[in-house]
Nucleic acid binder design. Sequence first.
DNA 1: CTTGACTCTCCGGTAGGCGGAGGGTGAAAG
DNA 2: CTTTCACCCTCCGCCTACCGGAGAGTCAAG
Lengths: 273, 273
Amino acid sequence: MTASVTIGEFSRLTHLSVKTLHHYHEIGLLAPARIDASSGYRRYETAQVPVAQLIRRLRDLQMPLAQVRAVVEAPDVQTRDQTLRLHLDQMERELAQTRDVVTSLRSMLTLPAGELAVEYRFMPAFRAYSVTDRVERDSIGEWCATTFGLLGEIAGLHGIAATAGATYSDEFFTEEVGEVVGFLPVAPDQSAIDRVGLTDLPAGFFAIARHDGPFTDFDRVYGALGSHVAEYCEVAPGPIRELYLVGPGDGVDESEFRTEVCWPIQRIPTPKG
Amino acid sequence: MTASVTIGEFSRLTHLSVKTLHHYHEIGLLAPARIDASSGYRRYETAQVPVAQLIRRLRDLQMPLAQVRAVVEAPDVQTRDQTLRLHLDQMERELAQTRDVVTSLRSMLTLPAGELAVEYRFMPAFRAYSVTDRVERDSIGEWCATTFGLLGEIAGLHGIAATAGATYSDEFFTEEVGEVVGFLPVAPDQSAIDRVGLTDLPAGFFAIARHDGPFTDFDRVYGALGSHVAEYCEVAPGPIRELYLVGPGDGVDESEFRTEVCWPIQRIPTPKG
DNA sequence: CTTGACTCTCCGGTAGGCGGAGGGTGAAAG
DNA sequence: CTTTCACCCTCCGCCTACCGGAGAGTCAAG
């Protein structure tokens, strides 16, 4: 039914290198069936081949070993397959995103950056339903999906037609993790409701640029707008705001998205020359 | 035209963390425009934003810094875009492959491994045109493409109808890099020709299993066949062989591929019990 | 002149292994 | 029965692309 093999043979069976098998033994992910007491030689069973292959496949997909462990140590097949399916879905989403980045890079190659229209605006203070979290850069997409899903739902329930937005703390950009606030403006006399907080956003001047299209090449607007501000304006403290004029909630294609990026400034600059 | 900003501001403009900017400075990938002599503070120019963003995008695509460097330090725009396009093509290929692995894993979940038909065969010695290289596991796909492209071309020119194959040294599996020989059998009196070598493959007994379908789930056959051999046969020294009965050169869909994996054994085992 | 935000350097750690040194094992060949 | 040689062991350091934090200096506003 099953046979005992040396680490080298097992390596050939599974296409995992000997070094890798050592490593998996060390961290307790895949231990040999037994170990010769006198020589210390590892002996694997051929019955271990399938699990080793599963591990290898998951690693091929860049799955972290911690997650791999969760999969192979799942108590029963249902749990395991469930976990696995979730990961596969996630990977497919990442794949799609990578593809987007590639296409966006390609288009960057063909059409150079256009002129950026910067507008200066005073935004009065306003009150908003809000969701505040400490978010990592990598998981911002997910966070936005859930947050604006929730805010959109609330907007529907209460008949609010305002444009949702978010503020991003400096930390979020400079240290890869920081406070992000998703908001939905409401009447100033509105009071708190379930599931979301209430925040008063301060008034201020902003340099504003609009971004048309999907979120993948958002960074270009940031670069261009930020450069503009650095040249012509005095920056003000406070987080950067984004206003989602047209976004995923509006049931249109990505290419139809409209977003305003608002950079806080001290005052509207007087034109030079 | 351009303005000088601190590292923190530059971080906001480019969405690269301060730590990352330090790192890029240290390795000389993206140095600040100047450094304050007394305080040691880095000063970046807004003109550096586009290159920083390019770097960030490439890193988002997992491109190693060495390659990123090659791109950003390209002498002229043509070279740079050319390099970039090549990398993007490569990434798209990898993307496609990852997708295949995902689908294959999914199918592994739904349909369990079937029975494996193992056949024992004596293969006489034969002479073959051959290409021998030390190949890394990761680049085996590429190597096969070029090698069997070449061998196929030669087969066409000389009217050879034999089945191409390859041998894989143990090292190749146990240490991630090792000797691989692509071969195309010819008549025993044939002599050497241009661009390829001539190898005599030794006779021997083999346990052979056929794999139907794309190369993505090749490992299952290895595992199953190897386990079978470990249980019922005495292994013989020498590299594992693969015979490409139907492969990429035959202009059919991946799912139509037929490959034999040949595991060297000492003799044909006598059935137990 | 203080406060607080920002910046500096340096040191150490992370994942997932690879590479090599130095030394013990096992089985077949002489 | 010994030698050879492939195989195996452990241990240590290195790799990439940064992140975290300590300890100390710097800048601008109040």
